[in-house]
Deep mutational scan, measured.
Amino acid sequence: TRVETATETAWISLVTALHLVLGLSAVLGLLLLRWQFPAHYRRLRHALW
């Protein structure tokens, strides 16, 4: 049971790290898009909202 718990903890930390990385890359990508294509971003936002 001790090994299982350790594996579970490792998986949880791995998944958390993955989610953090994905979230950060998504935010960075959005910022980059907004910085590179302001007109396109505004049009996209206008279409979405």
Rank of each mutant, 00 (worst) to 15 (best):
L32M: 10
V3R: 02
L22C: 13
R43C: 12
W49R: 02
V21N: 02
T5Y: 06
G23A: 13
V21T: 14
V15G: 01
Q36P: 00
V3F: 01
F37A: 07
L24S: 02
R42A: 13
L30M: 11
V21I: 10
R34I: 08
V21L: 15
A47P: 04
L28W: 04
L24R: 01
L24A: 13
A10S: 11
L24V: 05
A39C: 05
R45I: 06
H19A: 15
S25K: 02
L44K: 00
H19V: 15
L28S: 02
L48G: 01
Y41M: 14
A47W: 14
H40G: 11
R42S: 13
L28E: 07
L44C: 09
W35Y: 15
L48Q: 03
V21G: 11
A47T: 11
T16H: 02
L28M: 15
G29T: 12
T1C: 09
Q36S: 12
H46E: 07
R43P: 02
H46W: 09
V15K: 10
I12L: 09
L14S: 04
A10H: 03
I12A: 09
A17M: 12
R42K: 10
W35K: 15
R34K: 14
L31G: 06
V3H: 00
V27P: 02
P38C: 07
G29E: 03
L24T: 00
R34Q: 06
R2K: 14
S25A: 14
V27H: 02
R34E: 09
L28R: 01
S25L: 08
L44T: 08
T5I: 01
L32H: 04
R43I: 11
L30D: 00
T5P: 00
G29F: 15
L33G: 08
L28N: 01
A26L: 13
E4C: 04
E4L: 07
V27T: 10
S25R: 07
L48A: 09
H40V: 09
P38D: 13
R45Q: 04
T16P: 01
V3Y: 01
Q36L: 11
L32P: 08
H40Q: 11
Q36A: 13
L48M: 11
P38F: 13
A26K: 03
A17S: 09
A17I: 10
V15H: 00
L30N: 01
T16Y: 07
T16C: 14
L31Y: 14
W35E: 07
V3M: 01
S25Q: 09
V15A: 07
H46Q: 06
L28D: 02
V3P: 02
H40E: 08
L31A: 14
A39F: 11
L20C: 12
R2M: 14
H46A: 15
R2P: 11
A39S: 12
T5Q: 04
T1W: 09
R42W: 08
T5L: 02
V15I: 12
L18C: 09
L44M: 05
A10C: 06
L20P: 05
L33R: 08
L14Y: 00
G23I: 14
H46M: 08
E8Q: 01
A26M: 13
E4N: 05
L44Y: 09
H40K: 13
T5K: 02
W11D: 00
L31E: 00
L32W: 12
A47L: 08
V27I: 13
A6V: 02
A17C: 10
L33P: 05
E8T: 03
